[in-house]
Amino acid sequence: MKTMSPALKGDVITGSAVTVVGLVYYIATFWIQETKNIVTPRTFPAIVGVALILLGVFIVVQAVYRGKKAAEVGPGDGDTASASVDGDGATASASVSSGVVLDAPEDPPSKKVVLQFALFFVYLALLIPVGFLLSTAAFLMTMTSIYARDRWIRNLIFSVLFAVIIYVAFVYGLAVYLPVGILG
């Protein structure tokens, strides 16, 4: 495992996660009431659960096997060996059936991703109690200011204007009534 490339390590994690999801999903099918039909309500969910478990295990085994093979070839060649197997598995870049290799998108730092998601969830939680206008303006201001702190005046104007315009467009134009919250 020590010589495993990051891509293969990622596959071990992905495969394990898929297996766990499949397992939970399969266990949940035990609560479905059985009927006397040929195909019971449980049949499909059970198939899906088992398939996820098998696929997860397959991805892990494949990664471990490739890692071993790469280790035999020599530690330096590990990455290239796995990447040239027509993208089947371990490459970070998307290579499509016949070898047109595309640049992989950049990966942002995990800490920042967690922060962004956390802020998004705060916005989701506040939307209804606080109301669309205030929560949206605050959310936009926060997101844009984390990104570009120096342009706070532009961010403020954008946040307020965008919230107001969207509110008017949806409520008066499309008759989608957005929450008014504490302003109502």
């Binding site: 898929v18 991805i59 993208g87 089947d88 598995g89 490459t91 290579s95 499509v96």
Partner: peptide, 11 residues
């Protein structure tokens, strides 16, 4: 027929 790993597309 999708790009990348077939096992993952099945997932």
């Amino acid at each position: 027929m999708s790009s990348g790993s077939r096992a993952k597309a099945l997932v």
